[in-house]
Nucleic acid binder design. Structure first.
Length: 273
DNA sequence: CACGAGACCTGTTCGC
DNA sequence: TGCGAACAGGTCTCGT
């Protein structure tokens, strides 16, 4: 599931809780059961378990598509990649298929990292920047201006779609929200970045913030077997709507491959050049 | 520097 | 029905 709005939703639920699920802030970690070793990026499994023991969760947040847990001494980081999920379960609950890491907490709770495709990763570090340091700006940060984005775009001739997916360029966009933002901004996915006018850049930034904001308000998008109660999938304009009418002009949505990713756009609203 | 292919993985859907 | 191909919300590395 996880692009910025989905990760933000998960972080919020873990931090604040929801009906039938207590907030995790203040909980103490009592043990770690690593079921798939490669899910752990660093440190070694032995050091991971030893260092986690008895640390308290002080806060939970998001940076790009990463979830970060501020512990008393370290940072616990998760990247969910394609199929990862983080769930709170009672201590007595049985293991589920694809559970990769189970952290035992106080109050008879567990925090479970479940990840069918095994692409997701977990880090325990004392310095976050070693993992998060290369990320580009947060798109929803007010400090990011159209002028900033214009300068970043004009520093490269890369095509817009792969550029928006590059986490070093801007953090948090994935295939869904990149396609949705480009459609809303009326920009062709293959357009070279350095050719955008300042007005087009303003529209692009506004569109990115619009689709991410809508995604967050709708608790993210739920597709296939990964479900969190979000319903943004019902409001896609172009993503996975190949052949269906564009909401703006009725032209059938086209699908091309860009950087090996399926890319959806309206040939009429998003003309090339 | 920019791009494409391949790798990492499993599960579901599509086409014949 | 069965079976292989295509496809999936991500990112890294390598070769050109």
């Amino acid at each position: 599931m996880p692009e910025l709005p989905e990760v933000e939703t998960i972080a919020r639920i873990l931090r604040q809780g929801q009906p039938g699920q207590p907030p995790l802030v203040g909980r103490r970690i009592l043990g770690a059961n690593l079921l798939w070793e490669r899910s752990l990026a660093e440190p070694s499994p032995a050091e991971f378990a030893a260092r986690l023991d008895h640390q308290v969760i002080e806060n939970i947040g998001r940076r790009g598509k990463f979830l970060h847990f501020r512990l008393r001494r370290d940072w616990l980081l998760f990247h969910l990649r394609m199929s990862g999920d983080l769930l709170v379960r009672p201590l007595a609950a049985p293991l589920e298929p694809h559970d990769r890491l189970v952290l035992t907490l106080d109050k008879e709770l567990t925090l479970v990292f479940n990840d069918a495709r095994k692409f997701g990763r977990v880090w325990l570090v004392d310095e976050v920047d070693r993992v998060l340091g290369d990320l580009g700006p947060e798109p929803l940060d007010d400090g990011l201006t159209a002028q900033d984005l214009f300068e970043r775009l004009h520093a490269t001739r890369r095509q817009l779609k792969p550029l928006l997916l590059d986490q070093k360029f801007i953090a948090g966009l994935g295939n869904i929200y990149a396609d949705e933002a480009l459609n809303l901004a009326k920009l062709h996915p293959l357009q070279p970045a350095n050719l955008l006018t300042l007005e087009q850049v303003g529209r692009l930034l506004e569109s990115i913030r619009m689709v991410l904001g809508d995604g967050i308000r709708r608790n993210g998008a739920s597709i296939d077997w990964v479900y969190r109660g979000g319903d943004f999938q019902n409001y896609f304009r172009v993503y996975q709507r190949t052949g269906l009418p564009c909401p703006e002009c009725g032209t059938p949505i086209a699908r091309i491959i860009v950087g090996q990713r399926g890319t959806h756009y309206c040939p009429h609203c998003q003309p090339r050049e």
